[in-house]
Amino acid sequence: MSENHDNGTAETERTTSVFTDEVVARLAQDAKEIIGRYPKPRSALLPLLHLVQAEEGYVSAAGMEFCADQLDITLAEVKAVATFYTMYRRGPGGDYQVGVCTNTLCAVMGGDEIFASLKEHLDLANGETTQDGKVTLEHVECNAACDFAPVVMVNWEFFDNQTPASAKQMVDDLRLGKDVAPTRGASSLCTWKQASRVLAGFDDGRAGEGVQATGPSLAGLKLARERGWRAPDPANLPSSDEQGEEGAK
């Protein structure tokens, strides 16, 4: 139950990278744009960390140094923040981060079985990456899609109502380079680096893709339509003595 929740990659595995002048010059342009959105520069730190993660796939020492330079704060200050938030990888990972929700509701609905079957299928422990560099497997906490349980997130896109079989098929397809589409999201998955760049605040023009709402999101609306239920008509409200516990008729 209390499996290690920490981001998988150990300190010793971290690579030491250096940003070339070209990279620094390019990212400095982006950083300037990000910092310009905020009344105070330091507010840009979280998006800047997403930005350097978009560059390397994780937040390296070089990435943190870049952030520190841009904001004129110390490396220690950046590191304190980068290590607090679970979305920042501390070492290289796969193109696709597959996160199985194992919080209570999803776990009970089958998230535990999905996570166990993926670990076995990919021969990975929590936080590890396949040899081909495609898939990093981890378990995640509640991702606000409980009515679609059990849920798997890939690069923070929704894969709803999963089963061990569907999840195994999905990771196999990812490793084979096939197009894989989330159930609610863009029409195909982008890579981890591309996703990180969107999180940094740079649009990829894909907001119009995918459904607006589906399945459980529409359960109540569908029923209300069938039964002719609607909110009160503001031009014809019940008189005040009829109001109260019963609510809208």
Partner: peptide, 20 residues
């Protein structure tokens, strides 16, 4: 009996509900 009151969700069955 209490009934449902779709207000914030009332346009969710329009495919373009998320557009301006």
């Amino acid at each position: 009996m209490t009934t449902l009151t779709p207000i914030l969700s009332k346009n969710w069955d329009r495919p373009d509900s998320f557009t301006i």
